[in-house]
Simulated scan of single mutants.
Amino acid sequence: MEFKDYFPVWDQLTAEQKKKLSEHIICRTAKKGDVIHSGDSDCLGLLLIRKGQLRAFILSDEGREITIYRLLDMDICLFSASCMMHSIQFEITIEAEKDTDFWIIPADVYKEIMAQSAPLANYTNEIMAARFSEVMWLIEQILWKSFDKRLARFLLDESSLEGSSVLKITHETIGNHLGSAREVVTRMLRYFQNEGIVKLSRGKIEILSPHRLESLCSDL
């Protein structure tokens, strides 16, 4: 499949706009663990995921991470082109959670076409609204939801994403996703294990009772 098959508003662009995009997009591949964009780097451009999985997170002054969203096949990331959005005040880091193929759309090219195309402008606003909704949801969870509920939801979401009840993930990685210390994650997972909800082994978590996890986070 080609770029046009992944770009939702391709058919609503003019021939000239399609040509300009085609001439300037850049194909890239990232290996698992690669940092594609960091908050203090130059403006990279917009990312359109062909295949793989990226993670966008923010980093505190103390070095603690928290995931704000993930990017899967056909998702697009605007915050890697922060120079296009001068009102964005927080710095985002994007890394590959899996080997990932993606396109980079230069920010100046995208901005030029967006100024000419109402469909592209509307699409961009929809993405922006969706991303900020995810950030607001995250803030609500951190402020108002207990950690056991947040961890239960994370395990269920991760199981759905991976299509497996056995998760190959470390306690430190979970802590990075949830903005919590590894020790806090370990204590809660051990509690889940004692309750027969999960089974822990080195580098793995097996979900034994997804129904009890659902019950834990049913009010999320």
Rank of each mutant, 00 (worst) to 15 (best):
Q141S: 12
I142C: 05
I88T: 05
A118H: 11
I94C: 05
L208H: 04
E158G: 00
E126M: 11
G163Q: 00
F7K: 09
G52C: 05
R70W: 08
Q53M: 13
A121N: 13
S164Q: 02
S215A: 09
K32F: 04
F192H: 01
W137H: 14
E172T: 07
T100M: 09
L151R: 01
S80L: 02
R190T: 00
A15I: 13
L167S: 05
G203T: 02
C83A: 08
I92W: 07
M74T: 14
K31F: 13
V185L: 01
N194G: 15
F7P: 10
S159C: 06
S160W: 05
C83T: 01
Y69P: 00
I197G: 01
A130I: 03
K51E: 15
S180E: 09
Q141I: 01
L21K: 12
S146M: 03
T29Q: 15
A107Q: 11
E162C: 08
L21A: 12
P106E: 11
L78K: 03
K168T: 04
Q17L: 11
E2F: 09
E112C: 07
V198F: 00
C43M: 06
L21T: 12
L21P: 11
H86K: 14
F192W: 03
T93W: 10
L138P: 02
L120G: 05
A96S: 09
F147G: 01
Q12H: 11
C83Y: 03
D5N: 15
L216Q: 03
N125H: 12
S22P: 00
L178W: 02
M1E: 14
I49V: 15
E65V: 00
